[in-house]
């Protein structure tokens, strides 16, 4: 414990002495298309039918955050533990504030990743992985440290966490779900798990200046390829939305926006959810 604390301290100090460190705050900007995301209001033009929806929840885990220098060098951001949103390199982006229909969430919000990096003046890109790393994904939900204590992101049946939760209420039904996480996992909490489909999405954004730019997160992009108004028939489709389980018909179209392929480890097309904004 002491050793670990000491080495962490050294890690923090070492680069500081060498190149000089600076604080970096990555700011995220949640949206439905051009509109800022907010609980308690409706958003139009969603999905293949241009439906109207009210948000119920919108939260995203990210980890392995790095800045990218002009020459392509990847510089990991050292994430400071804050006992609430950031722990061990994992950060919870919590866009809902528990108001309106956002019943599954809580008042606290977090739209930032805070860390330190060497003070270079040529950072032109940012990279991160959407999801929870395997070694943290299967901790006991009742005792795991923040930000893994967010009950709405416990994925108890699948033995892990929801990496992304975007739930909305269309006009035709009470819920339309998007729960992304690792699936086809084997193992147990004590021994650890291995998952056939990690469903971790690596996002790389170029033309990004951490001081002046924000990172837009577009909920509408996740829903762009599906009909949120469609009520499941109970046979070919058993629930509204995608919960990443085998054969869930909405999943291919709802995982593609993150650059993922459903039930495959291969990368999909370029992601469309995150983009650089001024």
């Amino acid at each position: 414990m002491k050793l670990r604390a000491l080495s962490l301290l050294l890690l923090l100090l070492a680069p500081a002495c060498a190149a000089g460190d600076r604080e970096v705050t990555l700011r995220f900007d949640p949206r439905f298309g051009s509109e800022p995301f907010a609980c308690g209001r409706d958003f139009a033009g969603i999905g293949t039918t241009g439906a109207s929806v009210t948000p119920l929840d919108f939260r995203v885990y990210v980890h392995e955050v790095a800045l990218v220098r002009a020459g392509g060098e990847r510089v990991p951001l050292v994430i400071a533990d804050d006992d609430t949103w950031q722990h061990d390199g994992l950060v919870l982006l919590d866009f809902e504030d528990g108001s309106g229909a956002c019943m599954t969430g809580s008042p606290g919000t977090n739209k930032e990743v805070r860390g330190t990096a060497p003070d270079h003046d040529d950072y032109t890109g940012v990279e991160f992985i959407v999801g929870v790393p395997d070694e943290q994904n299967h901790l006991d939900g009742a005792t795991a440290p923040a930000p893994l204590n967010a009950q709405g992101l416990w994925w108890s049946w699948a033995g892990g966490y929801k990496y992304v939760r975007l739930d909305v209420r269309p006009t035709t039904q009470t819920e339309f779900f998007y729960h992304l996480g690792a699936t086809a996992c084997a193992g147990d909490v004590a021994q650890g798990f291995t998952c056939q489909y990690d469903n971790l999405a690596t996002v790389r954004l170029d033309g990004f200046d951490p001081d002046s730019n924000t990172i837009k997160v577009d909920a509408a992009a996740i829903l762009a390829g599906v009909d949120v108004d469609k009520i499941p028939d109970g046979m070919s489709d058993t629930l509204p939305g995608c919960m990443a389980f085998p054969g869930d018909p909405e999943c291919p179209a709802m995982m593609a926006p993150l650059g993922l392929r459903f039930e495959s480890d291969e990368a999909g097309a370029a992601q469309t959810v995150f983009s650089v904004a001024d």
């Binding site: 699936t183 086809a184 996992c185 056939q196 389980f245 054969g247």
Partner: peptide
């Protein structure tokens, strides 16, 4: 099996 009641399949995808 009927949708939503695939049993172990829902966890393994096999």
């Amino acid at each position: 099996y009927p949708p939503g009641n695939g049993g172990l399949y829902e966890f393994t995808g096999d």
